[in-house]
């Protein structure tokens, strides 16, 4: 990873039109050396890239719209060409929608929910963990009791309650705000705990005392001296959290209280495929494999980053 950072820094000095190309080239070089050192990490990055491309360019990749219902085309087999539509690569689902399009759009919902919920959860967790470690004393005691309280709920149960309490109000590209916030709230105490532990040890460094002696404000010390030293821990957490977030979203949808049933969420698709599994196994396997691969990608990435950044844990 260090290679990537130096390359990026070098590119910063380039001027004019060459800069973007050099930047991309630098990233590719960094990716290559990372993959050579950590083959599994390289594979995971590729999986994530493919899923990200699917999520971002879904409308360009899919021949048909995922919401259009082609009448008379329910449970069509792969290769079927519906009236007024294009070839259905994976056939259609129960109501006659292009199944390939739905699986591809499923990546979009998973990615949006995964990334936004982890971002919110990490941001809040980092703030709580940092404040807890930096101020200590009563603030620490109070914040840690709140963290304990949140951690006292089994994750899925807490998610169920929050999703129910908030109700599905705001929807963004098929992803529901209540699902995103429910997952974020589950992640907050986990992130806060890790950040607090790491920040406590960073805080003991003499440069923190030096900054204090120079008259730096609390916020400045936290943001400029402690935070940069815990970013690795936070990024590793983020990778594994995204995998977990995707699982929770899919599970909630599968149980019928997550993403709206009309939306192409992988959890919804798997729930719908159960009754017709014998006749239409692809309806179960495709979303299940797409989802498991995505989660695998983020889990492997987390492991590889941990190996690179935290040599103490290498090989365990």
């Amino acid at each position: 990873m260090r290679e990537i950072l130096t390359e990026v820094r070098d590119v910063g000095r380039l001027k004019g039109a060459a800069a973007p190309f050099a930047l991309v080239w630098g990233w590719l070089g960094g990716f290559w050396s990372f993959s050579k050192a950590k083959p599994l990490g390289g594979i995971s990055a590729l999986i994530i890239l493919v899923m990200a491309v699917a999520a971002i360019f879904a409308p360009l990749i899919t021949p048909n719209d995922p919401f259009t219902i082609f009448f008379g085309s329910s449970f069509a087999s792969p290769g079927h060409v519906p009236e007024g539509g294009r070839t259905m690569i994976l056939g259609s689902d129960a109501v006659g929608r292009d199944f390939f399009a739905r699986v591809v759009y499923g990546a979009r919902i998973s990615m949006i929910v995964g990334i936004t919920s982890v971002f919110i959860g990490l941001a809040a967790g980092v703030a709580i963990g940092l404040a807890s470690a930096f101020y200590g004393g009563r603030i620490d005691l109070f914040l840690q009791r709140v963290v304990d309280g949140l951690m006292a709920f089994p994750a899925l149960v807490l998610a169920l309650v929050i999703v129910t309490v908030m109700g599905s109000g705001i929807v963004f590209a098929g992803a529901q705000l209540n699902v995103i916030l429910a997952i974020a709230i589950i992640l907050v105490p986990l992130a806060a705990r890790v950040v607090r532990g790491t920040a406590l040890s960073v805080k003991e460094n003499t440069y923190v005392d030096a900054a204090k002696a120079l008259g730096a404000s609390d916020l400045e010390i936290m943001a400029r001296h402690i935070l940069p030293n815990i970013t690795h821990a936070v990024i590793i957490l983020g990778a594994t959290f995204i995998g977990a977030a995707i699982i929770i979203e899919a599970t909630l949808s599968f149980l019928g209280i997550g993403t709206d049933i009309t939306q192409p969420s992988w959890g919804n698709m798997i729930a719908g495929a159960r009754s017709r599994f014998e006749a239409e196994p692809r309806l179960l396997w495709t979303p299940a494999i797409a989802m498991s691969l995505t989660i695998l990608g983020f889990n492997l990435l987390g492991d590889a980053l941990r190996d690179v950044w935290d040599p103490r844990l290498r090989g365990t």
Partner: peptide, 18 residues
């Protein structure tokens, strides 16, 4: 173990029943 961690339990349960 890595594979198992990546397959949500509702998928395992669905497959195991069908």
């Amino acid at each position: 173990s890595v594979g198992g961690l990546s397959i949500p339990d509702f998928v395992v349960a669905t497959v195991i029943i069908v």
